[in-house]
Structure formats: C-alpha cells, structure tokens
C-alpha cells in the first residue's frame, strides 16, 4: 500500500455502469515526512475519508477485495485513515 492525502473528489455522470454509486477521491502520494509527491491516484473510498485526511491506499487487483468494490473496474481503494506514523530508522546488520 501507499501513504496518501485526499486532496479532492471527482464527479462523473457518464461512466461505466458498474461504477454508479462509487465516490472517487483524488489521493496525492506522500513522502514519509508527509510532503506531497507529484503522483496521485483516483481511488474509491471504503472507510469514510474526507478531503485533507492522511490515508492508506491499496492499488491493483487487491483494490477489488472490499464489499463495495467487488467485481467493479476499480484499481485503487482507500482502506485506512492514518492516526499516527512512527518512523524509526534504526539500522539492522
């Protein structure tokens, strides 16, 4: 999965009929220091995230493994809202 920030939503009336009812969020990828990268995904939300929230996103066919994205042409899903990050760069051997 990747760390992301919800920066907007996408509305589309003319779309694949399997996508009717899905809410599309624009999720900008983040570095570990929470600075924004250039890259982003359009993802469907499965946990009630809103604009501005730091989230975790799964991509690829795993994105279809939720009850709201099953059998739909969706390759990115927001599956968690981040409370806290802990980065410890202790080096192992």
């Amino acid at each position: 999965m990747v760390l992301g920030k919800v920066v907007g939503t996408v509305w589309s009336t003319r779309k694949d009929e399997n996508l009717i009812g899905s809410k599309f969020m624009i999720v900008r990828h983040l570095n570990l220091d929470l600075t924004e990268k250039e890259s982003f995904n359009i993802a469907v939300d499965s946990v009630g995230s809103g604009v501005g929230e730091i989230v975790i996103m799964a991509t690829g066919s795993s994105a279809r493994q939720t009850n709201i994205t099953k059998n739909k042409p969706i390759d990115a899903v927001i599956m968690a809202i981040v409370d806290k990050l802990d980065i410890s760069n202790s080096e192992d051997s």
């Binding site: 009630g48 975790i56 968690a80 409370d83 410890s88 760069n89």
Partner: peptide
C-alpha cells in the same frame, strides 16, 4: 522502518499491524 496506527480501517484488517 516504522509503523502506522489507523483505528478507522477496512473491517477485515482489524488486529493486523501496518
């Protein structure tokens, strides 16, 4: 290199560390 706490997550992920 680190861990993440997320109380609000997809239900089948409860109990798993990220």
């Amino acid at each position: 290199i680190g861990s993440i706490w997320a109380t609000k997550k997809y239900e089948t992920l409860t109990g798993f560390k990220l």
